[in-house]
Write a protein that binds this DNA or RNA. Sequence first.
DNA 1: TTCAATTGGGACGATTCTAGTCCTGTTTCA
DNA 2: TGAAACAGGACTAGAATCGTCCCAATTGAA
Lengths: 153, 153
Amino acid sequence: MLRMSKLADYGALVMAFLAKSDRMLNATEISSEINVASPTVAKLLKLLTRGELLVSHRGVNGGYSLARGADDISVADIIDVIEGPIALTECVSQPGSCVQESDCSLRENWQVINDAMRKALSEVSVSDLAGGRSHSVNLDANGSLEKATGGCC
Amino acid sequence: MLRMSKLADYGALVMAFLAKSDRMLNATEISSEINVASPTVAKLLKLLTRGELLVSHRGVNGGYSLARGADDISVADIIDVIEGPIALTECVSQPGSCVQESDCSLRENWQVINDAMRKALSEVSVSDLAGGRSHSVNLDANGSLEKATGGCC
DNA sequence: TTCAATTGGGACGATTCTAGTCCTGTTTCA
DNA sequence: TGAAACAGGACTAGAATCGTCCCAATTGAA
């Protein structure tokens, strides 16, 4: 179905929520706020921390906060960390795994499509998801991704 | 991993091969040419025919051929037929399925990302995959997908 | 008219992936 | 010192995918 995993979906939700709240939050708080089961959120937070998108603080009053500005974290970053590198086809991520071997005329084009997708995902930041920059992301007439000031939300 | 299914991958291979050969081919021939097991290819051909990307001819000397010009069939068409509509998140394809309900600030942005991905996939035709137009697909400096004459392959 | 070749459609099983849970260890601070 | 919170990994249940097989319907050639 060409769909992200739910984990990545929830991951975006977690990141957006942290961007909005702008203070350190622990796993329990985040879980109850975004309506996702607490062990699942805990798992996500660990992944996002290991991927250096979040920083964690142990101990009493510990929790998680964004590792850098919400503008500097893209949806592509989140997917990379949770699902691994974006790779539409196997041959893009694992050269040599395909029986078509050397003379596959498709592979180069898959790579291009892959790059275009990655670019689309890189254009949208956590800040956009959180709606924190008082604009929404729009697709202009040419199909390229642009930021439109004065959008909705 | 944000990956297409293998079936969709093989589907593109089948379509590209049919575009190259430019005559009617049966399932057995296609299977042996693209190195994919015959029952799998047969299944794919049925799907692609039902999706109106191929036309079939039964009986002796029957087979499959493209339903329309290779330029008029995009990678997005193939994915649509084999995997169903492209939907990065559940809320894009099934409104109302998400517990976040009404006030999800993310949904609108997912839709935009989804459209951008779909556009990237729509820009590449079966003809491009087959390399039949003596150019390859390139990504220009602005990230939009363009056809570059005089490319490789 | 008959028969072989070919597609059409659906059912089925094995494998793999995903989502979610739980347990134990480590760190921090009151 | 003890409670709160994160870190890491093992584990299970469920779902999706991949690939195969079977039989019916259709077509064209002998």
